[in-house]
Design a protein around this nucleic acid. Sequence first.
DNA 1: CTGCATCCCAGGCGATACTG
DNA 2: CAGTATCGCCTGGGATGCAG
Lengths: 130, 130
Amino acid sequence: MPEHDAAATARMVEQEGCPIVEVLDHVAGKWAIGIIVAAAPGPVRFTELERAVDGISRRMLTLTLRRLERDGLLTRTVYPTVPPKVEYSLTDMACELHASLLELTSWAERHRMAIARARAAYDVAHSAAG
Amino acid sequence: MPEHDAAATARMVEQEGCPIVEVLDHVAGKWAIGIIVAAAPGPVRFTELERAVDGISRRMLTLTLRRLERDGLLTRTVYPTVPPKVEYSLTDMACELHASLLELTSWAERHRMAIARARAAYDVAHSAAG
DNA sequence: CTGCATCCCAGGCGATACTG
DNA sequence: CAGTATCGCCTGGGATGCAG
């Protein structure tokens, strides 16, 4: 069981909220970005996310989903049907975030080539002249 | 020695660049955001960054700096004085990124309380009704 | 001042298998 | 379908100490 430290959590609320690094780490984390972007258009099911977020494992999808839910960025709706159906939606807070995240992914898309080239150049320079 | 795999790097360049998840992971990583934001106003020295990026260790600062330099986001200028002086500046690519990152940190700042509260609520709900 | 090297551990994360 | 459980590797990342 995870069983988050309730005392520590309470302390945060009383004080000034979560440290920004931590918030950013959750919200802009490796998988979180993809999930939030994928969930933005509307309610999304587990398996849809699994396919949308390229490269994610079932485990990390679950974990990241839980963390985002805990942080109040996602709402999880369970339909007690058979087979089960679960939908994830962004909260208002997360919708606001979504715009920034889109800019980010857009930037990444535009510069992935340049970055690959920069790396190659760096590697050459640092293998020749150790 | 790290000695990045030159073959793999070359393959990336020929093909389509770096996978977006990887780019985002570097660029929006836990420490990278703070560093880029701190370096945006102008050339910044190592120790300034160490103080600016709250909570970072000397080790992680160095590692993240190197990675950002390798990815072509930072330029590193060494002044051969004594004691040594090194300045880091954003590249054009990174300046473009900086705006998005600012939005992100601004969002984090605005919502840290709400997130702390959401967590507390989640924890209560999930410890009582396991 | 600006690092790199080393030790070391907790946690991230993938792989795989099992369940309601 | 939508998870949970377990194992095990590997990396992130702190602490400390040395060097140019």
